[in-house]
């Protein structure tokens, strides 16, 4: 273990981002978990923004991170509302069932 520097935080954020990406891909059955993966993606991006804010010693990154948190809350609300409406119509939350537009 080396002394923790900014690179460690960057690597942590990148690993989280990749985990979120993998989570979007492997969950073909449950839309809820895919939405959670999107939350993880946004979280990793805001960690990276805060890290770079520290690196540049400027508050820009933290402010952007704050906006990301607000946007993530809005996204979660609308996404879950759409999911509930979808569940009412189809009685299912599988991603495989989301193909009505295909005809």
């Amino acid at each position: 273990m080396m002394a923790v520097g900014l690179g460690h935080f960057l690597i942590l954020g990148s690993v989280l981002f990749c985990l979120g990406l993998v989570g979007v891909f492997i969950n073909r059955r449950n839309v809820l978990v895919s939405l959670m993966a999107l939350e993880v993606l946004l979280l990793s991006v805001s960690i990276l923004f805060v890290t770079f804010a520290k690196y540049h010693d400027h508050l820009h990154g933290q402010i952007v991170s704050l906006f990301i948190i607000g946007t993530a809350a809005a996204e979660a609300a609308v996404g879950l509302a759409i999911l509930i409406v979808f569940f009412r119509f189809k009685k299912s939350i599988k991603l495989e069932d989301v193909q009505d537009l295909k005809g």
């Binding site: 939350e39 805001s46 804010a53 520290k54 933290q62 704050l66 948190i69 993530a72 809350a73």
Partner: peptide, 14 residues
């Protein structure tokens, strides 16, 4: 990372 305000906003919002 020294972002105390964001940490607590994260707790409250998320």
């Amino acid at each position: 990372l020294g972002a105390e305000f964001l940490a607590f906003v994260l707790l409250i919002v998320y």
